[in-house]
Simulated scan of single mutants.
Amino acid sequence: MHLTQRHARPLRQRLNGNASRRRNRRGAAAVEFAVCLPILVLLVFGSIEASCMIFLKQTLSVAAYEATRVAIRDGRANADGERSARQILEGRSVNGFDIRFPNGEALDADRGAEVVVEVSAPSAANSPLIGQFVADRVLTARVVMIKQ
């Protein structure tokens, strides 16, 4: 007999030992998966929700900028700026938005006066995933320009 044959376990013992190790490893993998899955799901949906809120905030900023840019031109009124902002907000499917000119009518403002536009929208109405589970916040973008 060779030295390796004397110390080698019988074939049946080796196969049973490997199968036992494989079963134990499969069980450990199932437990690891069960622990990691909720964390991964939370990360994925959290990332999607954060991206949607960033998109909403950027849309509000763009709409406020465009409304102000239109309203500061000579001979233009708040309605012209509001129309411009509304097109952007509706084009990007923003729900429940509000457009305000807190300083009054831009048409009546003197040259060099500030024209302010605030555009707001609720986060819950514009959330694709968890808007019903998280407290509603109103996101607002404010732009100030000088009348030309």
Rank of each mutant, 00 (worst) to 15 (best):
H2Q: 02
R6P: 08
R6A: 05
P10R: 12
P10W: 11
Q13C: 04
R14P: 09
R14H: 13
L15G: 04
N16E: 12
N18I: 11
A19G: 09
S20W: 01
R22K: 09
A28W: 02
A29Q: 01
V31C: 14
L37R: 04
I39C: 07
V41F: 13
L43G: 01
V44S: 08
V44N: 13
S47D: 00
E49K: 02
C52S: 15
M53N: 13
F55L: 15
Q58N: 14
T59G: 07
T59K: 04
T59I: 07
T59S: 15
S61F: 00
V62C: 03
A63N: 04
A63C: 06
A63R: 02
A63F: 02
Y65P: 02
Y65A: 06
Y65W: 11
E66W: 09
R73E: 03
R73A: 01
R73T: 01
D80R: 00
R83M: 10
R86D: 12
Q87M: 06
L89E: 13
G91E: 07
S93V: 05
V94L: 06
N95P: 10
N95C: 11
D98P: 10
D98N: 14
R100T: 09
N103E: 02
L107F: 13
D108N: 07
D108M: 04
R111G: 09
P122C: 04
A125T: 11
S127M: 14
S127F: 08
S127E: 09
P128W: 11
P128T: 09
I130N: 00
V134W: 06
V134S: 08
V134A: 09
A141L: 04
A141H: 06
V143Q: 13
Q148K: 10
